[in-house]
Nucleic acid binder design. Sequence first.
DNA 1: TAAAAAAATGAATGATTATTCATATGAGAA
DNA 2: TTCTCATATGAATAATCATTCATTTTTTTA
Lengths: 195, 195
Amino acid sequence: MGQKNNNKYRKIISAATKVFAKNGYYKAKVSEIAKKAGIADGTIYLYFKHKDDILIALFEEKMKEVLDNMKKQISLESDPLKKIQRFALIHLKLIEDNKDMAEIIQVELRQSSKFMKNYHNEKFVQYLDLIGDIIQEGKEKGLIRKDIIPGIGKRAFFGALDEMSRFWVLSKRRKYDIETAAKHISNYFIDGIKS
Amino acid sequence: MGQKNNNKYRKIISAATKVFAKNGYYKAKVSEIAKKAGIADGTIYLYFKHKDDILIALFEEKMKEVLDNMKKQISLESDPLKKIQRFALIHLKLIEDNKDMAEIIQVELRQSSKFMKNYHNEKFVQYLDLIGDIIQEGKEKGLIRKDIIPGIGKRAFFGALDEMSRFWVLSKRRKYDIETAAKHISNYFIDGIKS
DNA sequence: TAAAAAAATGAATGATTATTCATATGAGAA
DNA sequence: TTCTCATATGAATAATCATTCATTTTTTTA
């Protein structure tokens, strides 16, 4: 038991994604996850020690997927400024294609430091660092101004995308389409930091 | 009872700010708020109907303060581009000066749509709109490009600042000082949208 | 096929806490 | 001082769920 490729493990993660997304971690009932996964309540505890282990496992899974996917896509582009554009588009598309996951990351990522004081979301840090690395590369190639600080730049850019996602995740209507939003946000940023 | 200028009402809000900030809304115990406010548990229910009313009242109070303060400060500047710079600085200073409040807004604002499905944070919308209005003004004065969409711009800029705050609120060490971060973030943005 | 091991079940447990309310306290009026 | 009303108290209540574990079902082994 407890194997990550186990059928039931997968079912629990998948059910939990939906249940956590609906009302947040605290309002999510373990029994509802079990029900949605089509198993008994107790079975969950054969695969996870505690309720919060489900959330952590879920984070790890999804973030790894997101991170691997983004890395691959970014590597297809060689121009750092183009990489930034692509990052924006991929990120927002990801939100669109994984609404449940996006809701959880939006809401619970913030909460995570509160209720799991010791859990450090390493994958999230790496995701941010992808942007930092692009900025660094751009500086080295002379495409980005030398005075740009990657640590600030990566947060500013990620934050801009993230706030746009938050708006989408939490509101019903989509006012701007993904391509437009991605293009605008990456262009503000690129024009703001390029040489 | 229930008067907003009431002594005990104030004490409860103030105690709740600290208690919510420490471990988040769900882990906060009403009895701990009461204890910190120096009153009996039951007294809280003379001023608030439910636990979540405390959080909503707290939001309203703090956001009103923040909003009024920002409005006043922004109005001292006439150049829209300077207003953006000032917005960044004031916003980050505010986070610095109100760490407890900042933690609550960072964490619970996200959560709020989950556990109070009907509560719409009007003051937050207005805060975002301050940025939207500045952008609009800049476009009218020919200082900002005509193709900039205020609805995207305001979210991008706020998101950039907000992600920087998140980093500060959740980490112990401050790597960049406020003035530097504010200057950089507002400059990326200004260079990205100016004519 | 029978025995043993592994997985799964779900009713019962036990801990947690928001909320209530019978009672007490204090302040102003007469 | 005594009565009244508003305010405050905090022990008791009652509902909620995560977690456990004795029992059952399924799978593997021989």
